[in-house]
Computed example of a mutant assay.
Amino acid sequence: MNLHALKLFLAVTKAGSVTQASQALCISQPAVTAQIKKFEKDLGVRLFKQKGRGIALTDVGEGLAEQARRLFALEEQMEDWISDYKQAKKGKLRIAATYLPANFLMPEWVAAFKTENKDAELVVTTTNSSEAFKQLIGYKADLAVYGGGLEDRPEDVDWEVLFEDELWFVVARAHRFANKELTLAEMMTEPFVMREKGSTTRERLFALCKTFNVRDPQIALQFNGLHEAIRAVMTGYGALFISSLVARDYVQSGHLARVKVQGPQLMNKFVICTRKDETPSPLTAAFVKKIRKASS
Rank of each mutant, 00 (worst) to 15 (best):
I242V: 13
S28N: 13
R176N: 08
Q222N: 08
Y99D: 14
A24S: 09
P264E: 03
E166H: 07
S296E: 15
V18R: 06
I291D: 02
L162P: 04
G52Q: 01
M267Y: 01
V259S: 11
K269V: 12
E66W: 07
L93V: 05
K86A: 06
A15K: 08
A65W: 05
V45M: 06
K114E: 13
V251A: 05
G61C: 05
E75H: 09
E66L: 14
V123Q: 09
D42F: 00
A112V: 14
R204A: 02
D142H: 13
Q50Y: 11
R202Q: 06
K49Y: 11
R173A: 15
P282V: 07
P217S: 00
S295Q: 11
R248N: 11
T126Y: 07
Q262H: 06
T189F: 06
I27W: 01
E76W: 01
L93T: 11
E164P: 03
F223P: 11
V110D: 09
T235D: 00
A172Q: 00
E160T: 14
C26Q: 14
L3D: 00
R70M: 10
G254E: 01
Q87E: 12
L74Q: 08
E166W: 04
K134I: 11
R153A: 14
L47N: 07
A34I: 12
T125A: 10
V145Q: 03
F113P: 05
F163Q: 05
Q35V: 08
G263A: 04
